[in-house]
Amino acid sequence: MKRIVLAKLGLDGHDVGVRLIGKHLMENGFEVIYLGKRVSTNLIVQAALQEDAAAIGLSCLSGGLGYFATRTLDSLNEQGADIPVLAGGIDEPAELEKMLQAGVGAYFGPGTPIEDIVRAFEDAIADDCSVTPLPQPASTRRRTP
């Protein structure tokens, strides 16, 4: 069974989406290891290597998605690990563009259908990263008192 490591980046605590994705990945035959919230990039890379992950899924809605996802990818490259990284959440368009150029396999904005996300993981693991949904405008609220 193919194993996928999921994690929340930075300090964002909104993990409804990533948990939902994990549930759908499991229903589609993957084994999922969710590392939780506020996970450092080092820990994500260590976990992916130890668990022989087939792919890594990263989520952040509060800023820093592009930065932390790129950092994770760089760290994997330094370790000589060729594990696809997919990312979802909200960030500035320029940060998302840089992240995709750096080699992050796919980006999912708010509202992306879950089936598309599951298919993107399947494609990425099959070494076919042709599914790359375009960045969508942030339409979810980020804070409330």
Binding site: G10, D12, S62, G63, G64, Y67, F68
Partner: peptide
């Protein structure tokens, strides 16, 4: 480290 890109934003 984890504060990066979230300082002063929300």
């Amino acid at each position: 480290e984890l504060a990066h890109a979230q300082v002063g934003r929300a």
